[in-house]
């Protein structure tokens, strides 16, 4: 599968995402924020960073950038779209996912290996996991606290749109421990923690067996479903 990774001014994790896609057995395709061209890719990743300096709000300016018109169109037609960290913020700003991400409860930038529970193992991006299993991948952000209106939260929980929840402690005050979401169709997934930083021995989170050997992010990039039952 050809998987596009969009780079915006201020993006940091585009190369890591490309590497993770390669480890997942797919071909990464570099895409640029200023182009109206997805180069015929089969899936899309919006990587982490601080697009456009996160001016206005995190991900807000990126959500209005030229390439996003094509990304939104592709997402609405069912293409798998994954937003990581700043990419998740863009997906909420573009209203492909509900809610918003705001400054962490204590105002601190948080960097830690974060345990998550997989709440949905039937989306385009999470079907490589076992439903209800726990995984550990890095979390690193200053504005990762998920919030939503009362109505949106009722919809999210009612429709089962939560893909990942924080376990063993909510790091940032996110509503209902929400770390990641999907849309109704299951093709769009956004999450604050970084699966692309847990795909290679020597560079992932520590495990009980060995330092930096955590590979819990890899299933996200191996099992990308091109079509998903609506």
């Amino acid at each position: 599968m050809r998987v596009g990774v969009v780079t915006f001014p201020g993006t940091l994790d585009n190369r890591d995402a490309q590497r993770a896609i390669r480890f997942g057995g797919h071909e990464p395709v570099a895409l640029w924020h200023g182009d109206h061209d997805l180069q015929g890719v089969d899936a899309l990743v919006l990587p982490g960073g601080f697009s456009y300096g996160d001016y206005l709000r995190s991900g807000a300016i990126a959500a209005h950038s030229p390439v996003m018109r094509e990304v939104i169109g592709a997402a609405e037609s069912g293409m798998p779209v994954l937003g990581i960290c700043n990419g998740f913020q863009m997906l909420t700003e573009a209203r492909l996912l509900p809610g918003a991400l705001v400054r962490n409860e204590k105002g601190l930038f948080i960097r830690r290996d974060q345990k998550l529970r997989v709440e949905r193992a039937d989306t385009a991006w999470t079907n490589g996991y076992e439903q209800g299993s726990t995984i550990t991948i890095p979390l690193k952000n200053g504005e990762g606290r998920f919030v939503a209106t009362e109505e949106q939260l009722a919809h999210i929980e009612g429709e089962g749109l939560v893909t990942f929840r924080y376990v063993d402690g909510n790091p940032n005050g996110a509503l209902n421990d929400i770390a990641g979401l999907t849309n109704e169709r299951g093709n769009v997934v956004g999450l604050m923690p970084h699966p692309e930083h847990a795909v290679e021995l020597g560079f992932g989170p520590d495990t009980d067996e060995r330092m930096r050997s955590g590979l819990d992010g890899l299933p996200m990039f191996t099992n990308i479903l091109e079509t998903i039952a609506a």
């Binding site: 206005l56 709000r57 807000a60 209005h64 909420t92 700003e93 509900p98 809610g99 918003a100 705001v102 919030v147 939503a148 209106t149 949106q152």
Partner: peptide, 8 residues
């Protein structure tokens, strides 16, 4: 639509 995000 742009300067404010009505969610927050």
């Amino acid at each position: 639509e742009t300067l404010a995000n009505s969610v927050i």
